[in-house]
């Protein structure tokens, strides 16, 4: 491998040819000491919370454009950029979307909520069987956590779009390279972190996918094939300031290979 040059070698080379242009091309290696303070990006990542209570005040349009612009510069597979956005800032439109999602959740609880009946009862046994079949067809959607959410939405205890003043629907182009859904997730992360750094609160809403079964509403919103609703992000000003301190989170296993040795870290 003769064409591979060591980092030290290139540095020597650049030093030899040092002039204004090469100096600009060089990337400085920052020496960051162990245990250094968080920088601004890390700070935004650590203090970001999912905001579910919003003030009524509408965030200005230029801020929404600004965070969407950050989404546009996300990495994607083959640089195919398989996304598109629908920004909904009409109260009536959000209310209509909300209403439809609530109706779907109410239908779902009637048919599959195995938590409504006592353990050992006949209804419970029948419904549990139903849910097991659905669960095999559509894994992950009937985990106890979304199940609780579906139940709360049906009862009106929990709003799908959290009464947010702005809802951004992220659409995925199904023709994208590789796994377009992953690219859409990266876009959303950019949007959410940019919003956090600008003082806006955000929340991901996976239940927005329920909207795709309503063709009339999709047409009205401007969602058509090959685009599909992947996720929604609610944006607004949060009530209270949950970004004042980072919280504790679970640690996950890290398998660490170095120097021919395998280690397990947490």
């Amino acid at each position: 491998m003769s064409d591979v040059v060591d980092v030290e070698d290139t540095e020597d080379l650049e030093c030899a040819l040092e002039d204004d242009r090469t100096a600009r091309r060089r990337v400085a290696i920052h020496d960051i000491a162990p245990g250094a303070d968080w920088n601004e990006v890390e700070e935004a990542i650590l203090t970001r919370r999912s905001i579910r209570k919003f003030k009524g005040r509408q965030p200005p349009a230029h801020l929404i454009r600004r965070i969407l612009e950050m989404g546009r510069f996300a990495p994607s597979q083959g640089n195919c950029q398989p996304w598109s956005f629908v920004v909904v800032r009409d109260r009536e439109m959000i209310a209509e979307m909300e209403q439809y999602c609530v109706a779907v959740c109410q239908n779902m609880t009637a048919g599959i909520d195995y938590t409504n009946y006592e353990s050992g009862s006949e209804q419970r046994a029948a419904i549990l069987q139903n849910t097991q079949v659905l669960n095999r067809q559509n894994p992950n959607s009937f985990h106890p956590v979304p199940m609780t959410a579906i139940k709360s939405i049906a009862k009106g205890r929990f709003a799908v779009f959290h009464k947010a003043p702005t809802v951004i629907l992220i659409l995925v182009d199904k023709r994208g390279v590789g796994v377009p859904e992953v690219d859409v997730g990266v876009v959303g992360t950019n949007i959410v972190l940019a919003a956090q750094s600008l003082g806006l609160g955000t929340c991901w809403v996976g239940f927005s996918r329920l909207l795709s079964s309503n063709t009339a509403l999709c047409e009205k919103l401007g969602v058509a094939a090959p685009f599909e609703i992947a996720e929604a992000i609610c944006v607004g000003y949060s009530i209270g300031n949950p970004a004042q301190q980072p919280v504790s989170r679970q640690t996950h296993e890290i398998i660490w290979w170095e120097g021919g040795q395998k280690e397990v870290l947490y």
């Binding site: 245990g35 980072p246 679970q250």
Partner: peptide, 27 residues
Amino acid sequence: VIASEPYDFAGYYEQKRIGKFEFPRKF
């Protein structure tokens, strides 16, 4: 107020490769 223990649904799936709750650590 602090959430001190994670949720776990043994009947749904077993949680694997999970450690304790930790605040952000500086390395």
